[in-house]
């Protein structure tokens, strides 16, 4: 299961990673992207282990 399965679609261009995704997250992270891009972005994130990047990317 990849990150994409945990992402909540807020609108056509807003995608949200919930705080339950990783320990240490204090707020949900939002990604502004088309569906094609959010799939690319989360595929890259799947390779990366740490939680910190998510809020930086949002």
């Amino acid at each position: 299961m990849g990150i994409i399965d945990k992402v909540r679609k807020v609108s056509e261009t807003v995608w949200e990673i919930p705080v339950t995704y990783k320990e240490g997250m204090r707020a949900p992270a939002r990604i502004i992207a088309t569906e094609k891009l959010v799939r690319e972005i989360t595929a890259v994130m799947d390779f990366q282990s740490a939680a910190s990047r998510q809020w930086m990317w949002a």
Binding site: S11, E12, T13, V14, I32, A33, T34, K36, L37
Partner: peptide, 11 residues
């Protein structure tokens, strides 16, 4: 695609 996303999102 990136620009389209920022435009559609209205940012």
């Amino acid at each position: 695609e990136v620009i389209e996303a920022t435009e559609l999102a209205g940012i």
